[in-house]
């Protein structure tokens, strides 16, 4: 197993969170900065998965229960890999980080914290996050940090599908009925104030030159992609101002507290237990 794992963490292999954990036990530890960066990526994926998981058994059609389930599963896989790697800096496991951090210790973005709303709002959030993650991971594969690059190599292929899924629905809802057009447009209006935060650089990003992807560099291709999808979907980019958020991601929306309360309740009732 240990002999294999050295070759496993290379782009192209179907990397599993367990493989990262194995590497960590073999001494592949993230630096404090890399860990902070991995937390941002992992927390976005985790909070998104937590949101999407709610849809399983509630989607507009059974086929969509399965589709959203697949996306949530991919995201939780990415979250586990990033958090496992992040935890290596502090001797913490993925679950230590997911269940035993408080709100201000999370590094998720406002966007993924936004409530599901109706299917239109969920799809709007999906298109934004998937387009962003796609731009991000397709560059992170070239990171000097091999572990981040390897996680990104697996994730980018999956996120490619998430983006396609959101795009298909955006076009159908935008150019479907009057009601669907109104709802998907409202969905984009409600999530748009939180788009800007995804593309903000800060000191951490500066310190991780060559390792982290610079968020501001993703904006142009993100905008071009969104413009193309919106043109087909007969939608307009919402005319709303970016919300005051936090480029260091220490501050959060009010929604996160409720989400964490639900996610962590059982684990916290049983400190020290294994599941």
């Amino acid at each position: 197993m240990s002999g294999e794992s050295a070759t496993r963490i290379t782009p192209g292999n179907a990397l599993r969170p367990e493989d990262i954990a194995q590497q960590v036990t073999e001494g592949n530890k993230a630096s404090e900065d890399v860990a902070d960066y991995a937390l941002r990526l992992g927390d976005d994926a985790l909070i998104l998965a937590q949101r999407l998981g709610w849809w399983i058994s509630r989607a507009p059609e059974l086929e969509e229960d399965v589709a959203l389930g697949n996306i949530a599963l991919d995201q939780i896989g990415h979250a586990r890999s990033f958090l496992t790697y992040a935890g290596s800096a502090w001797g913490k496991s993925e679950d230590d980080l997911a269940y035993w951090r408080g709100e201000s210790e999370f590094r998720s973005s406002y966007l993924v914290e936004q409530p599901n709303g109706d299917f239109g709002r969920t799809i709007a959030r999906q298109l934004v996050i998937a387009a962003y993650q796609h731009e991000l991971y397709s560059r992170l594969v070239d990171s000097q940090d091999e572990t981040l690059a390897a996680i990104a190599a697996k994730a980018v292929k999956e996120v490619d599908y998430h983006r396609d899924h959101a795009e298909q629905w955006t076009v159908r809802l935008g150019d479907g009925t009057e009601e669907s057009h109104r709802r998907i447009a409202a969905g984009f209006t409600s999530v748009w104030p939180y788009v800007q935060q995804l593309f903000e650089d800060d000191d951490l990003i500066d310190r991780l030159d060559g390792i982290a992807v610079r968020p501001s560099e993703l904006r142009a291709s993100f905008d071009a992609y969104i413009a193309a999808v919106f043109a087909e979907a007969t939608l307009e980019v919402p005319d709303v101002q970016p919300a005051m958020t936090d480029k260091t991601r220490v501050k959060h929306s009010e929604h996160l507290g409720y989400l964490l309360a639900e996610m962590q309740v059982l684990a916290r009732e049983h400190p020290g237990a294994t599941w």
Binding site: E63, V66, A67, N70, D164, H165, Q168, R172
Partner: peptide, 20 residues
């Protein structure tokens, strides 16, 4: 089999449903 509004969605639903 499955239900889908059009061919593009059908092939995607098929991917999710029959090749998990």
């Amino acid at each position: 089999s499955l239900h889908a509004p059009d061919a593009e969605m059908a092939v995607r639903n098929a991917r999710d449903l029959y090749t998990r």
